Amino acid sequence: MQAQFSGIPLSKLKSRWFFLLIALTPLSIFGVCYWWQTRVAALPYFSLGFKQQTDAPYYQVPGFAFINQQGLQTDSSFVKGKVWVADFFFTSCPTICPKMTRNLQKIQAAYKNDSGLTITSTTVDPVHDQPARLKAYAAKNRINTGQWQLLTGTKVNLYRYARKALGVVATDGDGGPGDFIHSDQLVLIDQKGHIRGYYDGTSNSATQALIKDIERLLQNN
């Protein structure tokens, strides 16, 4: 006589448990992989020139002091201790900048209630992008300036910061009249001021990757 449990033959119970285990295994693997990607696997560190660093001490972004869309000074205290996404643009740009702004809007929408994220967009055309124009640009693009600041200053200082602090271009220049920077890079900086990634700001897929990497930094803080 076949052994039973609550009227069900044990052979059938074993079969059911076997198929349940088979069904749950892919979910378990997915869960472990997701946990690893979001909580454990470390993002790389970068120095200037888009170079990955494998050993500490890691490059740390220096401080800044520029003028925001309100005509007020914004310095590095705005980003201190927070995840920071930075880019360089100009308001009259007809090509890559509108795409970058739209993708930054996606990032802001994903973290609109998270005080742990800040964004800065710094102009490369400070002659025309005075605070009033930046303020109008922010209003037009529905930018929450409490979280996302638009910055201007002297061309020499802005260009030096783009090259020597955030490394968005590999070219040399002095910020003079003939110098011009036009970069599609979004830079991800962690809470300790380390560069953790460069992303194509015109790419939807790169933006989605950036959104996920922001979450990883926020969760591992």
Score class of each variant (00 low, 15 high):
102 R>D: 08
117 L>H: 07
181 I>E: 01
121 S>V: 08
70 Q>L: 04
132 A>N: 15
61 V>C: 02
75 D>Q: 05
171 T>D: 12
119 I>R: 04
128 H>R: 15
170 A>F: 09
123 T>H: 06
84 W>E: 04
39 R>P: 07
77 S>Q: 08
170 A>P: 03
71 G>N: 13
114 D>S: 12
164 K>F: 00
166 L>P: 07
97 C>Y: 01
75 D>G: 03
161 Y>A: 03
63 G>N: 07
97 C>R: 02
59 Y>P: 01
67 I>D: 00
172 D>W: 01
47 S>Y: 06
164 K>M: 04
50 F>P: 03
99 K>Q: 15
41 A>W: 07
109 A>W: 02
108 Q>D: 11
74 T>E: 13
123 T>G: 07
49 G>K: 04
119 I>L: 14
99 K>T: 11
183 S>R: 01
140 K>G: 03
84 W>P: 10
150 L>Q: 05
113 N>E: 09
118 T>D: 11
169 V>R: 04
181 I>T: 01
70 Q>H: 09
136 A>P: 09
56 A>M: 08
130 Q>N: 11
138 A>L: 06
130 Q>V: 14
181 I>N: 01
155 K>H: 10
61 V>Y: 00
179 D>S: 03
84 W>G: 03
133 R>H: 13
122 T>H: 02
81 G>A: 12
55 D>P: 02
70 Q>Y: 05
98 P>W: 03
160 R>M: 01
104 L>T: 01
116 G>K: 15
74 T>M: 09
84 W>L: 04
168 V>E: 00
168 V>S: 01
58 Y>F: 15
167 G>W: 04
148 W>Q: 09
129 D>S: 09
90 F>Q: 01
37 Q>S: 12
179 D>K: 01
162 A>D: 05
150 L>R: 06
125 D>F: 05
149 Q>G: 06
166 L>F: 06
86 A>R: 01
39 R>W: 06
164 K>Y: 03
50 F>K: 14
47 S>A: 10
59 Y>S: 00
119 I>K: 05
173 G>K: 15
43 L>Q: 13
163 R>M: 00
183 S>Q: 05
78 F>D: 13
39 R>M: 12
176 G>L: 14
49 G>S: 09
76 S>P: 09
48 L>R: 05
179 D>H: 04
70 Q>I: 01
123 T>S: 14
36 W>R: 11
112 K>Y: 10
40 V>G: 05
127 V>H: 08
